[in-house]
Amino acid sequence: MAERAERDPVIERVVHEMRATSPSSDATIARVVAAAVQAREMGVLEEAEDVPVRVRTPRRLVRWRVAGWIAAAASLTGFAVGASITAWRDRAVRVVAPVEGQSVAVASMAAPTGAPTGAPSAALASNSAAEDARVVTQFVLARPGAASVALVGDFNAWDKAATPLAQEPGSGVWSVALPLVPGRHVYAFLVNGAEWVVDPRAPKANDPDFGVAGSAVVVGRP
């Protein structure tokens, strides 16, 4: 590029200086990998700084409370509705890194329940418990004439084959209900395997990292 080719000696010197790197230690790499793996497994990433990632761990599921009238309204066009579950007990879990020399594989292993809160093993144990606390959420999209509609989102790793919607015969309304972990989720519909459609009734979720907007749904805690 011309601008780079025409760099004068001063800028060349600056670039040379600023390009110097220090090698990253194995422990640093392990810490980063462990944090990322754990966050992805949890499906939870709080934005606030200095706030540990928290997972609410259910003691047991007590009852379902499906908002039927909302579901009926949802059938008119596309949006997500949720059912909630009660009875929770909190367990704060920090995304923790392995200690120096500990391998990433160890840090990402599942742990037995009952481990002390805050330890890596406890974080992962509570994660599996959180899996049981999902709230059934319905997604609906009116798209007459579509050959297929799929739901993609952070909850299914944006896998277009994971969550197909079913069409109510002759209605052009597509829907699916799936259990989601409470929290904010970003999703979109994929029509005919290729057309990215945001939910017209849901808040838009801009994604400065990915560059393509999706829709946001907040699955509430009971």
Binding site: R19, T21, V32, A36, R40
Partner: peptide
Amino acid sequence: CVRFARGMLRDQGAAEDAVQEAFVRMYRA
């Protein structure tokens, strides 16, 4: 990444934190 973040944030610790956050977000996305 740390090189760039340090240039941006002018602090090694803050740079390493930002890089970790970036990799967390990257892996998730």
